[in-house]
């Protein structure tokens, strides 16, 4: 795949998934024509979804021989952790790509439960499962032909930077493809790269700053509604209609996609600049919108939010100040 008309040697690029859905890999592909720049400048050395390159090939690579690795998905099991460590060693720049690698993402909601609770539900209680002997998958199992191994399923879901050193974070579920091109160009040229540890490929403002729905600065919320409890007028700010929208506690950069589809934001881009915790940020934003005369009334209004922890930390529980539910 080399091209002699390009003078600079191509950089080596790897894309890998931990505990993921594949949507991040799709977003890499969704750069369309702009992927021309990437393909012209990079050789893909590892990408299981599209290429026949195996783990042993990666482990045989020299340390630091991959210029850029986009790691998507959370760290859910020992295989994810092992590959994170291998790719860290083999890569000059390691990017946590997407909500799961960055903050834990949707799989991170599992931190509301323990490994035991998950196994019990899936392998024993499930209404379609017949398992009188209470068989569970185990890491090493001896069959008559030999030993079969599967990775250890951890009790907790981890973000990528909770297991290895991460250079940059690209938020989103999945990240907006256009932004990847900007980051990629910066990595290749070395121009415009912010300090290590920065969130890149997103905006330095909140999602509300990007939203086209109409909003006022009035305190308007008397109670909260679930989305189906109102007749959405399709033009007024969801919060002002009393529906929880994570816009104020979310970094911009997604193109306000869900709201354009008449769905409130659920925070997949993570907390906005200068804020580390979406839940704390959301509570302070809501506080400025509630129309109440007394602290008791504020409490009553807040009580009308259903599943606040699951809403405020929808994409970020493992990476938040909570980390997990203490069981």
């Amino acid at each position: 795949m080399s091209d002699s008309s390009i003078p600079n040697p191509k950089i080596k690029l790897a894309v890998y998934w931990g505990s993921a859905c594949g949507g991040c890999c799709v977003s890499v592909l969704d750069t369309h024509e702009k992927l021309l720049d990437i393909v012209n400048a990079a050789d893909l050395v590892f990408w299981p979804i599209a290429m026949d390159i195996k783990y042993k090939d990666v482990e045989a690579m020299a340390d630091q021989s991959i210029d850029l690795t986009l790691f998507n998905g959370a760290v859910r099991n020992s295989e994810n952790k092992h590959m994170a460590e291998v790719l860290r060693k083999k890569s000059k720049v390691l990017v946590a790509y997407g909500a799961c690698a960055y903050m834990g993402g949707i799989p991170g909601l599992a931190n509301f439960h323990s490994r035991e609770e998950i196994f019990k539900r899936v392998y024993e209680e499930s209404e379609s499962t017949l398992n009188p002997d209470k068989v569970r998958p185990v890491e090493e199992f001896e069959v008559k032909e030999g030993v079969l191994k599967i990775p250890e399923f951890f009790n907790d879901v981890y973000t990528l930077n909770q297991v290895v050193d991460v250079d940059y974070f690209i938020p989103g579920c999945p990240p907006q493809s256009e932004r990847l091109v900007e980051v990629f160009t910066a990595v290749i040229t070395g121009i415009g790269l912010p300090p290590k540890g920065s969130v890149v490929g997103a905006l330095e403002k909140t999602n509300c700053d990007e939203c086209l729905r109409k909003k006022t600065d009035n305190k308007v919320i008397k109670r909260f509604y679930r989305p189906w409890e109102i007749e959405d007028d399709k033009e007024t700010c969801f919060l002002e209609q009393g529906v929880i929208c994570m816009g104020p506690a979310t970094r911009g950069g997604c193109g306000v996609r869900c709201v354009t589809g008449h769905s409130p934001c659920r925070g997949c881009y993570g907390p906005p600049p200068n804020s580390t915790d979406p839940g704390a940020k959301m509570m302070s934003s809501i506080g400025t919108m509630i129309d109440a005369d007394s602290p008791e009334e504020i409490d009553e209004i807040i009580e009308t939010i259903v599943d606040p922890a699951g809403l405020f930390y929808r994409f970020s529980l493992p990476g938040s100040i909570l980390g997990r539910k203490v069981l």
Binding site: R76, N77, E79, P107, A110, I118, V122, S126, D307, G310
Partner: peptide, 15 residues
């Protein structure tokens, strides 16, 4: 299949 995420469990409690 070496992976499990447990959607069956963590969807509990959500609206």
């Amino acid at each position: 299949v070496p992976e499990l995420r447990g959607f069956e469990k963590f969807c509990e409690g959500r609206p």
